[in-house]
Amino acid sequence: MLEVGKKAPDFSLFTTPDQQIELNQLKGKRVILAFYPADWSPVCGDQMSLYNEMLKFFHKQNAELIGISVDSKWCHLAFSRDRNLHFPLLSDFEPKGAVSKLYGVYDDKTGECKRALYVLDEEGYVRWKYLSPVGVNPGADGIMDALDEMNSKK
């Protein structure tokens, strides 16, 4: 994974069938990157559903949440609608896993993203990272603590 203090590399990925999100466009906001193995699998579903409930906590901290997996944009669309998600899911689909590899969270054996979290500051520097066991939903306490700590260091 990228080290804390490193500049997070820019990327641009599809979030809907006709819309891309570029990381650099989010400058001025904190960004939570949640890499996860796959749409529809039980643990990811729970993890994304949990984060979906706490967007207001993230927004209060000037943070935007972004989910990233290697699923296609059409898959994300269906998953997002099914779970009523209110944050973007990005599709690291072509070339497959390119962004995940850049962030050191691609699993070559499964061909999926690992379950990993990054918190970036307003300038796009890594301030916190966490790699979770693939079958464990990491919850949100680590992210919340990281955001709080960033406030206290301001």
Partner: peptide, 12 residues
């Protein structure tokens, strides 16, 4: 309560 759960690491 919900926020305290998040801070406590409730994941489901």
């Amino acid at each position: 309560d919900f926020e305290s759960g998040l801070r406590s690491g409730v994941n489901g």
